[in-house]
Structures are given as C-alpha cells and as structure tokens.
C-alpha cells in the first residue's frame, strides 16, 4: 500500500502540488487524471523519490521512502516498474540490453537465463524477436512496449505508467490499455496510471482521482466521475472548452 500525505512541491516559486493526500491499495488500478502540466508526473516521480517533496511524506508499505538510506532506497525501488512518457530507453543499447540491464546489475543469472527472461517479457508485451533492434529503429508504440518490458523485468509489485497512450494512434493506445489490464490481472500488480486520455481511463481504471490546482479534487469510480456535479470534473470529462478550467496554465502561488 502507498500512502501520500500532505505532499507539497514547488518549482521556482510555482507551487505544483499543494497538499496531496492519496492512498493506493494493493492490487488496484488507479488512474490519476488532470490537465497537462498539473503535476501528475511530478506526483508519480515523488513516489519513488526521483523528486523530493518540500513538505509531506510518502509511505510505501509503511516505509517512509524519503527517510531510507541510499542503499535501502535502491532496494525499495526494485519493487517498482516505471514506464516513462517517452519510454526513456537507453539509446546506446539494443532492446535486449535495455531490458536485461536491471538483471545484469542486480542478479547473478547466467547470460542464457537473462536472454530467456528478456524474450519472455518481450512476448508478454507482444514484441517477440526484436532483441537486436536499437531504440531508434522502433516506432513510438513499440518503444513504450519495450519500456514496459523493461519495467516488468524485476517482477515489480507496483507499476507506474506516465501517460502511456500519449502520442499513439487509437489502435496502439487501445493495445496499451489492454496490456495494462492484462498485466494487472495476470501479475496481480498494483497499477498507477497517469493520463489525460479519457478513453484510456474508461478502459483501465478501477478508481480515478483528479488532480487540479495542486490538490486531489475527486476520487471515485469512472461512473462516479462521469456523473460528478463538480464543475471542474464535469468540464474535464466532457472536454468542454467553456468552464472553470482556464486554457492558459495557471501559476499557483503558495
């Protein structure tokens, strides 16, 4: 279970998170929605301490992630798989080297065992046989799936997806959504998905939370979100140009 308590974060005077409180239960598929630039990815990066909060704290299985030493932090991070927005594949390595890197670093497995595992994960994401390709030879959707295979290689307990369908065609986006659900059901992992793609939300979410003006303003099921009376939530769900959400990103002063 992940507990986020009163999380605040500012960048150069701009408050991005202004007291986020959120509990993520084991095994659930939580989707975090909100406008571009509202701090969804920032929140995700705080969970594995890639960013440190100005105030507040995060407990991962009751362990305060910010207080653990560096060695324990890296140990704790092995429980997480993180799919980055642009996949963040290491461009100097091949697909198989990318996926195998955590195993080479953290295990004493033989080359054959590692190759088998890489191949298994590539099949799981629907891309068997592309081990020797370089990231520059892959399409956007393939990159995301290879990124996902890499995120899964240490068999994490939590998988975090940062805008997994952004920039993909509808068919590929649907495939990624299907994959998220499949992984969640087959591997019994906790999934945290950050997106602003409402079609994706419909397909993936057990529970949706909406981040707006640095705070969580809604938490509930997709149906509850669709029926919400809150003007901000309603405008977001209906993708209406008119409403309380301004087209220009606001600067939230603390």
């Amino acid at each position: 279970m992940i507990e986020i308590k009163n999380l605040h974060k500012s960048f150069g005077g701009k408050a991005v998170l202004r007291g986020v409180n959120l509990t993520i239960q084991d095994g659930e598929r939580l989707v975090i929605v909100g406008r571009s630039g509202c701090g969804k990815s920032v929140l995700l990066k705080h969970i594995i301490n890639l960013l440190q909060p100005d105030e507040g704290y995060i407990l991962v299985d009751e362990i305060p992630i910010r207080k653990v030493g560096q060695k324990d932090l890296f140990q704790l991070r092995r429980q997480f798989g993180f799919l980055f927005q642009g996949a963040a594949l290491f461009d100097s390595m091949t697909v198989s080297e990318n996926i195998a890197l955590p195993l080479n670093e953290h295990t004493k497995w033989s080359k054959t065992e590692i190759a088998e595992k890489v191949s298994e994960k590539l099949s799981l994401v629907g891309l068997p046989g592309i081990e020797d390709l370089k990231p520059s030879e892959l399409s956007g959707g393939m990159k995301k799936r290879v990124g996902l295979a890499r995120a899964l290689i240490l068999e994490p307990k939590y998988i975090m997806y940062d805008e997994p369908t952004t920039g993909l065609d509808p068919i590929m986006a649907a495939n990624i959504d299907k994959l998220i659900v499949k992984l969640s059901e087959h591997l019994q992992v906790t999934s945290i998905v950050v997106t602003h793609d409402m079609q994706s939300v419909e397909k993936v979410a057990d529970r949706v939370v909406m981040l707006h003006n640095g705070r969580i303003i809604f938490s509930g099921t997709v149906d509850e979100m669709n029926r919400s009376d809150d003007e901000v939530v309603h405008q977001f769900v209906t993708a209406d140009a008119d409403g309380p959400i301004q087209p220009k990103p606001q600067k939230y002063l603390t």
Binding site: K45, L50, F74, F80, L89, F90, L101, E105
Partner: peptide, 21 residues
C-alpha cells in the same frame, strides 16, 4: 541528453545509481 530525455531517471527507477554506472 540522457538527463533531458529521462534516461537518467529511468536508470534510477531501475534501482541503478547513475553515479556508479
């Protein structure tokens, strides 16, 4: 380039210290 394309963040997320690697 690795920093701005989140490759260094990815390395940290994979529990590999970029300072070492």
């Amino acid at each position: 380039t690795m920093r701005v394309t989140e490759q260094i963040d990815a390395m940290e997320a994979l529990a590999i210290d970029p300072v070492r690697y």
